[in-house]
Design a protein around this nucleic acid. Structure first.
Lengths: 213, 213
DNA sequence: CTGGATCCCTCACGATACTG
DNA sequence: CAGTATCGTGAGGGATCCAG
């Protein structure tokens, strides 16, 4: 039997053999947001050794989940992107993110936040049912990380960086999670200063309808 | 930072820290089929060392995914079962199983098949849309493993062991996967002897409508 | 018998340094 | 930028042993 195999002829075991290795699904998570170069991935995955990243990318490529693409002029370099098969992991990543968010307590001392992880969190907590007929643009600032979320026609589109025309800018730390999980109210969060907003406060009420743990 | 942590404040990372360890999701998979004792789990997970099983069960218990329950007279002993929170992993396990089944080729030399893994496979490939108004009972024999699947009112119920009143008994090896993935036709499978049936052949045609990769 | 605990060995992972 | 090279550690693999 191959060395990391589980010895079972079973789709689920096979899935884990490829995608169950340490870091593998986090790489997939980041690539679900957008294709990336080696150094982008390395930056977004705090603590991953470069040799492990190399190994995982090779394994994911061999498994047909990730493909390398050479960047044209003038950029040069290589980007990694998900294949069609790799993209099909989206539902798994979303479900697992949603499940994990429920037991996500307060941040531990050295924990960081990345642009891709927040965008994933927004996508996992998005409530399409609450988005019918809604058009709104949010800009989210968590420490140094700034992302945005556009809701329109029942769909969510996220991206990194600020927005030119936000309906609401939310500046917050981990307190945002408490808001989304209904552990505190918007009024309390603003009052105690853990969440700061720029824009009409009603958009914050709408925010916690649209994104919910 | 704790030693196996990913250093990100993110629901998805937290999920992987608990459930991303080697063997963890396979334990959950088996417990999704039914509560089990230590030795049942050990038997169903070929190759897992007992100390790793002990460690995982402890971690899963600490994370609120698994609970221990003392068995009453006359059985005695301990069973492990999923908590409500643990049960919520079902969609993840099903999705991953479905995804993995697509790239499941032929069995490798030493690979085994367990009752729980087949039942999981049946559940992941079940097509509710094809089950409307259908009532049928299948008995499946793969080598020494015998399971059954009852379809009724659009729902699937699986279990281990034979059936008293099967509409169709299917005896097969890995060839069944080719059938479910539409790589071969029922006629071919029966002709070359890779699949043997007892009962009306039309039930086999229905089978591959109900269970599909 | 069930439900583990203990020991040893190996290899994957983590950390750091270095290179085309 | 995109990795390779090297080395130490600890989790996992495998066998054996033990208490209720």
């Amino acid at each position: 039997m191959s060395n990391r195999a589980y010895g079972q002829y079973c789709g689920f075991s096979r899935a884990l053999e490829v995608v169950g290795e340490r870091w593998a699904l986090l790489i997939v998570r980041d690539l679900l947001i957008s294709p990336k170069r080696f150094s982008d991935l390395h930056r977004g995955l705090p603590g991953i050794p470069t040799n492990v990243l190399t190994t995982r990318l090779g394994e994911l490529e061999d498994a047909g989940i990730v493909a390398r693409r050479a960047l044209p002029r003038p950029e040069r370099g290589t980007v990694y992107e998900l294949t069609e098969y790799g993209n099909q992991l989206e539902t798994v990543v979303m479900d697992l993110g949603r499940w994990g968010a429920k037991s996500l307590g307060d941040p531990r001392p050295d924990e960081t936040i990345t642009s891709d992880s927040i965008q994933t969190a927004m996508r996992t907590t998005f409530q399409p049912a609450a988005a019918r007929g809604v058009k709104v643009n949010y800009e989210l600032r968590m420490g140094p990380v700034v992302i945005h979320a556009r809701v329109e026609r029942g769909k969510l589109v996220t991206g990194s960086g600020p927005l030119e025309d936000p309906d609401l800018v939310i500046e917050s730390g981990p307190a945002l999670r408490g808001l989304m999980a209904r552990e505190i109210t918007p009024a309390e969060a603003i009052k105690n200063g853990s969440v700061k907003i720029t824009g009409d406060r009603r958009f914050l009420n709408q925010f916690i309808e649209l994104f919910r743990i």
